[in-house]
Amino acid sequence: MTLEPLKLELEEKVPGCGLEIISNPSPSAQHSLLIDPEHAVAVAMYLRDAAHLRFDYCSNVTGIDWPAPNDAGKAKLKDMEEDLEQDEADCATAGYLEVVYHLYSMEKKHGPVILRMRTCDRGLRVHLPSLVSVWRSADFQEREIFDLFGVIFDGHPDLRRILMWDEYTDHPMRRDYVEPDDYEYEPTAHDEVLRKTMNHYAK
């Protein structure tokens, strides 16, 4: 599904919404639509209810952590993704968290349309509107993103941790997550594990 006409249509139907097409240069070419949090629910409602679109199935919700470029570079994976979306990472200085929704239409048999939303930063302003009121299937997955990334979904009916326990305070899928130092002997440590080993024995 091409996003340009969809973007024009949405800008017409949902006045004032800020949309941006984020292209994906990889062979999959799954381009996505960045929507601003203020109009996210309205855009989602339109995508679901418009007669020729009917995106009635939200198959997947996931999160991405984009730390500020200067304190990044910890993980190799990060470098790879940075190459892919160089311009994107450069524009933010404080880093941000991103939530990605994959939408399909069971009725019209088309899709996916990929929506993205970004938080202001990675510290306190991590609020995004919940889309559970639009797609109920987003319920558990938004809880998972809240648990693992720390995005706070406003309007979620039951925003609790889902995988980790309630007393837990960390967000383990963030790139700057520091795991507890419970290293144990590994016979064939390498790469990340070897680094952990050295850190453990350095103490």
Binding site: E184, Y185, E186, P187, A189, H190, L194, T197, M198, Y201
Partner: peptide, 17 residues
């Protein structure tokens, strides 16, 4: 108890322990 092993680590030792 954590297993007691002798670990010699070099900075660029990729073979591990």
């Amino acid at each position: 108890h954590a297993p007691l092993v002798q670990i010699a680590l070099a900075e660029d030792d990729d073979s591990g322990t």
